[in-house]
Design a protein around this nucleic acid. Sequence first.
DNA 1: CTGTAATCCTGCGAGC
DNA 2: TGCTCGCAGGATTACA
Length: 294
Amino acid sequence: MPELPEVETVVRDLRPLLVGRTIERVVCGKRKLRTPWKPAWSKAVAGMIVDAIRRRGKWIVVDLTPRPPSLKGKGEQSPSLLGEGLGRGGSSLLLHLGMTGQLTVVSAKSEKQDHTHLVFSLDNGHELRFRDVRRFGSAEWFASSDALEAKLNNTLGPEPFDLMAEEWHTRVSRSARCLKAILLDQTVVAGVGNIYADESCYLARLHPQRRGDSLSKEDCERLRIAIVDVLTRAIEGRGSTIKDYIGGSGLMGTYQGEFRVYGRTGEACLNCSRTIAMMRLAGRSSHFCSACQR
DNA sequence: CTGTAATCCTGCGAGC
DNA sequence: TGCTCGCAGGATTACA
């Protein structure tokens, strides 16, 4: 799956290709994603202009406006949208890539790959395409930013980069769960997934099975810094491509070459040469060095 | 509150 | 070559 660095890369890649463009029409495939796309959403989105594209946790938000904000300030008030409970903030698309989702902008003439479920035609002969082999991803349209922000804030904790040392320590040290489970919990910190949870624990020299309430304040701080560090470097490397992930313009990531523990079961620890071990935690394969990580 | 397992899907590599 | 099995960057739900 795409985790925070991969999603961030997609968003950065897509931004110059999408912002300011008009979405002329939307075509949805037959097979449904995690959240079935409603035909009414295609109508609502058609004619909209992409105002912004941003990331929140592992989610991608595409903000839409009915018309250019400064062009022709007067004129009719897009009547079709008034009945939708449209808040003042405008509407948005909310996308999640799940395990195998890909979001790319390509020429409308380029061949359509299998498992392409949503196509947004742009006003410049290109298309925004959402492809997802396993269909664990989702795509929704929100009529108001109120509804969207409510959903995001109810399901997501702070961004790792905004994480305050205090609140992080409090949250972790109050939990009896193991670190791996805490790191994967999107309501604690948003955007960390299986790869970067393992890599962060390794960098902080903490065993992923350690209980949160067994950590000292220094342990917690080391872990917080490690998360920020790993994610920052991964973003610099445009994320990790293991198999399905590609950036918004089709480029692969490079951070998979930097893995210290993830996927290195049986190989030598880069620090002490002991064998990297693997166990199942929180339902996910977890990689670690039992000598370096306590 | 924990952890565990199953669920949603398709594809790929390992092992027989 | 071909088959079955287990596993995969996620999230949610049910249950012990």
